[in-house]
C-alpha cells in the first residue's frame, strides 16, 4: 500500500495556511480517532457548523474559546500535553515565534498528541513539522469539490503539491494526479472522461510508519 499523502506525523505540531485551512482541519479531524480539541479566539466570528461536519466529529469535539492570545497558547499547550486527545486544532492570531513553536512541539511529544495550527499566511514557526498551503479550487465538473493542498515545508520528507476531491462528508478522498506526479499507469481512456482519477478513493486513515 502506498503511503498516505495527507498523513500527519503523530506526536508533532503541524501548520496549515491559506483560505482552505479549516477544510483541511476538518479533513484531518475526520481521520484522527479520539477526542478532538478545536481552539479559537473568543472573538472569532466563524464556528464549526455541526450539520456540515462529517459524521462522528461533533460528538468528539471540544471547542475552546479562550480570551486573549496568551490563554489560547496555554490552552493549546495544555491540550497537546493531555494524552487522550487525538488532534488539537488551534487558530492563533499572531505569528508563532520559534519559542512558541518549539514549546508546542515539546508538548505534542510529551502527550503523544498531534497538533494542527491554522495560521495566517507566513505566520508560522520554524519549529513546525510540516506546513500545508490549502486552497479550494474551482472545477468545471458539477459534482466535485476540488482542493489543492500543497506541502510547502516538511522536516522529514519531500514537499509537493496535491490536488484532490474531497466533498466534506467523510474521511474518504479522491486524489487527482497531476502531470509528472503520476503514481501508477493511467487507466484506459474512457469515452467522455474529463479527468484522470487515480484509483485512490475510499482511503481510510491508516496508522502508517514514517517513510
Amino acid at each position: 500500500m502506498r503511503p498516505d499523502p495527507f498523513h500527519l506525523r503523530p506526536a508533532r505540531m503541524h501548520e496549515a495556511e491559506g483560505s482552505g485551512r479549516r477544510a483541511f482541519a476538518v479533513f484531518q479531524a475526520a481521520r484522527h480517532p479520539g477526542p478532538l480539541v478545536w481552539i479559537l479566539p473568543a472573538h472569532a466570528p466563524q464556528m464549526p457548523m455541526l450539520p456540515g461536519l462529517p459524521p462522528g466529529i461533533a460528538s468528539r469535539l471540544h471547542l475552546l474559546r479562550p480570551k486573549g492570545e496568551i490563554d489560547l497558547m496555554w490552552a493549546t499547550e495544555e491540550s497537546l500535553r493531555a494524552a487522550p486527545v487525538g488532534l488539537v486544532i488551534a487558530e492563533p492570531e499572531k505569528p508563532l515565534s520559534l519559542i512558541a513553536g518549539r514549546r508546542l512541539q515539546l508538548a505534542a511529544e510529551a502527550g503523544q498528541t498531534t497538533g494542527l495550527m491554522l495560521i495566517r499566511e507566513g505566520a508560522g514557526s520554524n519549529a513546525a513539522e510540516t506546513r500545508w498551503r490549502c486552497e479550494p479550487l474551482a472545477t468545471d465538473a458539477a459534482d466535485s469539490t476540488l482542493h489543492r493542498w500543497s506541502l510547502i515545508k516538511n522536516k522529514k520528507g519531500t514537499i509537493g503539491l496535491r490536488t484532490l476531491h474531497w466533498d466534506g462528508t467523510s474521511a474518504a478522498f479522491d486524489l487527482v494526479s497531476t502531470a509528472g506526479e503520476r503514481h501508477e499507469p493511467a487507466p484506459p481512456p474512457r469515452p467522455g472522461a474529463v479527468r484522470a482519477d487515480l484509483a485512490f478513493g475510499q482511503c481510510r486513515p491508516p496508522a502508517l510508519p514514517d517513510p
Binding site: 450539520p51 475552546l64 474559546r65 480570551k67
Partner: peptide, 27 residues
C-alpha cells in the same frame, strides 16, 4: 482512564479560561 484524563483536562482548562469557554456542539 482516557475519560478520566479528558475530564481532568476540561477541569484544568475550565479553571483557567472559564468553564463557559470549554464548549461542546450538540445537535
Amino acid at each position: 482512564r482516557g475519560e478520566d484524563a479528558l475530564a481532568d483536562l476540561v477541569s484544568r482548562l475550565g479553571n483557567r479560561i472559564g468553564f463557559d469557554r470549554v464548549l461542546r456542539l450538540l445537535p
